[in-house]
C-alpha cells in the first residue's frame, strides 16, 4: 500500500454517558488507514462499536479521544463550517435508505441538494447532473420526479448511493448497506458498489456483519469485539489464516447453503457481554475457548503477526 491513505484513524475512542452517569466506552483505541480505491471492512457483532466508529469518521458522532486525518488534514479539530465543506469528500450510505430520504421530496430534489449545499452546480445544470447520477446507479432519468415510497428497497438503496456519490467523494462509509435487502437484490447493490469503485477509485469503509458479503467486497478486514479491533489484515490473511480465536469462531459460524460442507463449527459459550461491563484483561476471555489466567488480567495489544496482519491475543 504505497499510496498515502485517504483517511487515517489514530487511537479514536468514544465514551457515552449512560443514564446513571456511568461511562460506557463504545469504541476504544481504534486505529486504521484506508488507501485510495480500497475497501476496508469493519465486522463484528451488535454492540462491538463498528457503526459508532463509522460515524465518527464523518464526525456525525464526535470522538472522545484520538484523531482522524483526511489526507493530511486533522478533521477532529475543524470548525463546524469547515467540517461541512469537508463532507463533500466523505459521504455515508445507510442500512435503511427510507429513513434517510425525505418522504416529501422527489428523488430529483433530494439528489439536487448536494449540489446546492456545496454550490457546485447552477440550477440549470442540476437536472442533467441528476439524470447522469440516476443512470450511474442503474435507474432512469424519469425516476427524478417520483417520491421514495414509489420505489422498492433495492431502488431506494440505489438512490441513497446516488446521493452519496453526487459530489465524487473520496470516501464512502457504508453502514450495513445490503443487510435490509432481499437476498435476490443484495447482489445487485454489491455489484453496483464495486462498479462505482472501479470507475471512480472511491474508498469504502464497509460496515457489515455478513462475513460472506465482506469476503466478496473487501480488500482488508478489521474484526471488532467490544469496542476494540482484535484482528486486522488483508482479506486473504483474515479469511484463510485467521489468527484470533474470535475471528476463527466468527468465520466458523457462517452458514453457507452447502449442506455437504460440514466443517466443525466452533460454538462460543455465552453472550457478548454488555459494553457497559467490559470484562477485564482481554475482553474476549469470558467466551474464549483457549483463555488462560493471564488473559483475565492483562489486556493484549495489537501486534503484527504477519506482514499487514495484526492481532490482539496473548496466545496466538
Amino acid at each position: 500500500m504505497s499510496a498515502a491513505p485517504v483517511l487515517s484513524a489514530r487511537h479514536i475512542g468514544k465514551d457515552f454517558k449512560s443514564e446513571r452517569g456511568r461511562v460506557v466506552r463504545a469504541v476504544d483505541d481504534v486505529s486504521f488507514d484506508i488507501a485510495p480505491g480500497e475497501t476496508l471492512a469493519l465486522v463484528g457483532e451488535s454492540g462491538c462499536g463498528k457503526s459508532t466508529t463509522g460515524r465518527m469518521l464523518l464526525r456525525l458522532i464526535e470522538p472522545s479521544t484520538g484523531q482522524i486525518f483526511y489526507q493530511d488534514t486533522d478533521i477532529t479539530t475543524l470548525s463546524a463550517g469547515h467540517m461541512r465543506a469537508m463532507r463533500r469528500h466523505m459521504q455515508m450510505v445507510f442500512q435503511d435508505p427510507m429513513g434517510s430520504l425525505s418522504p416529501r421530496r422527489t428523488i430529483g430534489q433530494t439528489l439536487t441538494e448536494p449540489f446546492e449545499v456545496h454550490g457546485v452546480a447552477k440550477a440549470a445544470d442540476c437536472r442533467d447532473r441528476v439524470a447522469a447520477l440516476l443512470h450511474q446507479v442503474g435507474l432512469s432519468p424519469e425516476h427524478a420526479d417520483r417520491y421514495p415510497r414509489e420505489f422498492s428497497g433495492g431502488q431506494r438503496q440505489r438512490i441513497g448511493i446516488a446521493r452519496a456519490i453526487a459530489l465524487n467523494p473520496k470516501l464512502i462509509v457504508a453502514d450495513e448497506p445490503v443487510s435490509a435487502l432481499d437476498v435476490s437484490v443484495q447482489a445487485q447493490i454489491v455489484n453496483l458498489l464495486q462498479d462505482l469503485q472501479e470507475q471512480t477509485r472511491v474508498s469504502y469503509l464497509f460496515i457489515a456483519h455478513d462475513l460472506a458479503v465482506v469476503r466478496h467486497i473487501a480488500d482488508r478486514v478489521a474484526v471488532m469485539y467490544l469496542g476494540r479491533i482484535v484482528e486486522i489484515g488483508g482479506k486473504h490473511q483474515v479469511y484463510n489464516t485467521p489468527r484470533h480465536p474470535y475471528t476463527k469462531a466468527l468465520l466458523s459460524a457462517v452458514l453457507e447453503p452447502e449442506p455437504e460442507h460440514t466443517a466443525s463449527r466452533i460454538i462460543l459459550r455465552g453472550d457478548v457481554p454488555s459494553p457497559s461491563a467490559v470484562p477485564s484483561g482481554c475482553a474476549f476471555h469470558t467466551r474464549c475457548p483457549i483463555a488462560e489466567a493471564r488473559c483475565r488480567v492483562e489486556r493484549p495489544e495489537l501486534r503484527e503477526m504477519d506482514k499487514g496482519q495484526e492481532i490482539a491475543c496473548h496466545l496466538a
Binding site: H209, L250, L255
Partner: peptide
C-alpha cells in the same frame, strides 16, 4: 448475532 445463531440452531 452469528455466534448466538450458531448456539440456537
Amino acid at each position: 448475532d452469528v455466534t448466538i445463531q450458531s448456539q440456537v440452531l
